[in-house]
Design a protein around this nucleic acid. Sequence first.
DNA 1: TATTTTCATAAATAATTCATTATGCTGAAT
DNA 2: ATTCAGCATAATGAATTATTTATGAAAATA
Lengths: 310, 310
Amino acid sequence: MALHITMRQLQVFESVARHLSFTRAAEELHLTQPAVSMQVKQLESMVDIALFEQLGKKVHLTEAGRTMVKHSRKMMAQLNEIEKDINGLRGVDGGQLKICIASTVNYFATRLLSRFCDVYKSVGISLDVINREELIKRLEANQPDLVLMGQPPEELDVVAKAFMENPLIIIANPQHKLCGKKNIPLSAMANEVFVMREPGSGTRTAMKRVFRQYEVEPKFGVQLSSNETVKQSVEAGLGLAVVSAHTVDLELNAGRLVSLEVEHFPIMRKWFVAYRRGKKLSATAQIFLDFVLSEGGIQQESHNRSKATK
Amino acid sequence: MALHITMRQLQVFESVARHLSFTRAAEELHLTQPAVSMQVKQLESMVDIALFEQLGKKVHLTEAGRTMVKHSRKMMAQLNEIEKDINGLRGVDGGQLKICIASTVNYFATRLLSRFCDVYKSVGISLDVINREELIKRLEANQPDLVLMGQPPEELDVVAKAFMENPLIIIANPQHKLCGKKNIPLSAMANEVFVMREPGSGTRTAMKRVFRQYEVEPKFGVQLSSNETVKQSVEAGLGLAVVSAHTVDLELNAGRLVSLEVEHFPIMRKWFVAYRRGKKLSATAQIFLDFVLSEGGIQQESHNRSKATK
DNA sequence: TATTTTCATAAATAATTCATTATGCTGAAT
DNA sequence: ATTCAGCATAATGAATTATTTATGAAAATA
């Protein structure tokens, strides 16, 4: 790029071209006339061609001048567009939001989202429901603005805020022999078969941790890839399962599944809304974050799952 | 225009955005890394929004950043277009030429033009054949690049170069009583009727001046608005006329008109190619000017018909 | 001819910009 | 834990730019 044309030059030039007078342009721009002359002269020397010609005392544009006027206007319009476009991004109105949610969150996230959309109608939301593993990949790639998930990842430096309780319970088929029993000891689980999600699933990790902690080793049965199939499998009597209580509301009420009152259960965990540390949240994302936190109704304490817990 | 975004800022920003690395951009631009950081920071402060976000050690564009990249590219493309467009004007190729010619010049100007076009095929020419009065108006309005005319105007500061002899002769119907006579005294014209062009016509002015100079007062008959009708009128026997010899070549050869050998005639005048003083001749116009002068084959002496004959 | 208008040029200076070096911080990799 | 790579910040100096005042020249006007 050889030419070092400045916006100022174009601006001053355009004014002269419009008035066909250096003096008028100077007045318009609150400058002295020589200042205008010099800017124009600089622009002329940049393109190495005369932009004005003075015949008698009247100033005329040359052919090159007419061309330059067009370009000047275009450039200035372009600049204004930048301002406009960027300002558009600054506000919430018309904002775009990319949200990823862990699959288990799905059950209430949709309700959350629809309430949000009611309030901020002009916000465009793209929602991806994915498993924990994929979600972490996406976070690494800086794809989503915000994610809703269970336990925030240890391996990534994220800012995570809890926004809702997430009790994990053990569910069983209503015909199961432990149904209705009170204070079932955890050790009783050693005789049970558990169906579960794929490795990497947050629920699976939490469950395993508890059993390991109390040195109970249940049997592990079928491995399933969606929460829905887990529930169906339990309903079909393939075994027990640890799930987020929110995801089985309907089935419990309908009596198709029951919650076992096992010792140490429910495991009280939380749902988090999270984003990568350093992420510049757009106004829209910030609003959504606040919305989720207030709707969730947990008193705030920032969870900072990072090595850099300085 | 509040924002004082510089091309440099956009250029540096674009480089960073392309590499997603300040250091790489610095290398590309032969700068130090802090210099790059500062340019980007300045741009960010101009639009008052973050363009990059650093997550871990990777640099990402923000939404605003992505928008800005588009605009940066557009702006830089725009700049290149200026250069291209202006360069297009600098050369002869594809140039535009607005030429006005006095109506009497028409007879050979067309031939001149066609020869010019043969050589410079890519030059677009707009040609207006108009009378002297209109031609001067056009000159005042700075409409034509060049004009071809008889006597250059006194009232306007033009640069005029003679390029061809312009003998003015007196023509008559072949049946006219003075036909074939040698050395007709100018005084004999006092008994003749002259048809002529409208006031303002160069030929008319020249003719009147000669008659006044030698104190001869011929009768003035019909006033005609085109050279063609003047010839036809003379042919029809309505009177004599003073015309540029070039315009009646054909008629003289065909014997439809004759030239009278009157004392002081032919008045030797010249055709001029002219443009307003101060006019920035485009390359194309300059070429045309040179072409006309060389084709005309008059040794050059610059005629400068101006008050400011300093 | 004298005056006014308008633009160009020159010199001076005020302001800003640009880039450098030096240094610190952070995250990732060894 | 140390080192390395990569960005930010600060201090500084050089270079450039923007702008002003003062002045001159040319053209229109009175």
